[in-house]
């Protein structure tokens, strides 16, 4: 029995041992491309980054494909959004990866939502009569550029813990990321300033942090109960309110079926903005600045067009 045990251990663990010593980079896996962009920007040459969800994929409904477990089994650090955005698939992937380093509670697991203040935290009695809601608040916080700075600081800190010899590099990269965001922020603020207080609607609550940052006022969602297709009665009510408030635009995530949003746009005269929500979500959005540029650009163009032809 003991001999069997010993042979088994040898057979099982020897290939794993070789795999572990393959390279010296910090191998990072992020759930979303936005976190991937932050990790690459902070880590630079010292990290290797894989992302699970693609930029044009809905991060709520990723399939827990076993190939992701293989990727995670080799990771030194898993960076996740948190507050239950990935609850439908990430726990199964972590369990299947069999990599203790990235288990929640270990230094190789980082949930970046801890760095930000979540909005839309449901109050009162929380149950599923309101659909598949997020009980800890809205997890789409990366569309507020200032949140990206907070998340980047957290990522830099964790990378320094895992790779102490890179601390100076990570700090320098964090400073340059902050400078990049600050510079771009001036441009975005200037472009959005004329439209402060504009009433808008969106399909899902994905853009709320963006709306908060730039002073847009959401009067409701097409998908009023997350995860459930909107009912005609709700849409009729929303259309009535949109007409009253003369809502000029509808924010729509590129991975949602545009049929319902098109219908509402047609009936209200509002312009439909089909937008990427993550880095890589559109061809024009391969960096974070380009992502926000794309959203700001489409919004401003739609506002100018609706001012010209109301």
């Amino acid at each position: 029995m003991n001999r069997f045990c010993f042979t088994f251990i040898l057979v099982v663990l020897s290939p794993w041992g070789f795999a572990a010593s393959a390279d010296a980079d910090v191998r990072i896996v992020t759930t979303t491309t936005d976190l991937g962009w932050i990790a690459r920007t902070i880590g630079g040459e010292r990290v290797h980054v894989d992302t699970l969800c693609q930029g044009n994929q809905d991060p709520h409904y990723l399939q827990a494909r076993p190939s992701y477990m293989v990727t995670l089994s080799r990771a030194d650090l898993l960076i996740a959004v948190g507050i239950e955005l990935e609850v439908g698939w990430l726990p199964a992937l972590i369990q299947g990866a069999r990599n203790p380093d990235i288990n929640p509670g270990h230094s190789g697991y980082l949930e970046v939502a801890t760095a930000i203040r979540a909005i839309d935290v449901p109050s009162g009695r929380v149950d599923r009569s309101r659909g598949d809601i997020h009980p800890f608040g809205n997890p789409h916080f990366w569309l507020d550029p200032l949140n990206v700075k907070l998340v980047a600081a957290l990522v830099s800190q964790r990378l320094s813990e895992l790779d102490a010899s890179g601390t100076t590099v990570f700090r320098a990269n964090l400073a340059s990321l902050n400078a990049r965001i600050d510079r771009a922020m001036e441009r975005w603020q200037a472009a959005m300033a004329p439209y402060r207080g504009t009433s808008i609607t969106s399909y899902h609550a994905t853009f709320n942090y963006f709306h908060h940052r730039f002073g847009l006022v959401s009067i409701g969602y097409l998908e009023n109960r997350p995860g459930i297709p909107p009912a005609p009665a709700h849409l009729a009510d929303l259309i009535r309110r949109m007409r009253e408030r003369r809502v000029p635009v509808i924010f729509h995530e590129s991975f949602h079926d545009p049929a319902t949003s098109n219908l509402v746009a047609r009936r209200t005269g509002a312009r439909l903005l089909v937008l990427p929500v993550s880095v890589g979500g559109a061809q024009s959005a391969s960096t974070y600045e380009q992502l926000i540029d794309t959203i700001v650009g489409q919004f401003v163009r739609a506002m100018q067009a609706s001012a010209a032809h109301p």
Binding site: N2, C5, A20, S21, A24, T167
Partner: peptide, 29 residues
């Protein structure tokens, strides 16, 4: 006993694997 021996073997194999790894190329601090 078998389980405990497995645990110990995992720990030591891990140490051994990293010993055999490449030397660190750059040390900033």
């Amino acid at each position: 006993g078998c389980l405990a021996c497995l645990m110990v073997a995992i720990k030591t194999s891990r140490v051994a694997a990293q010993d055999g790894g490449e030397p660190v190329s750059q040390v900033d601090e």
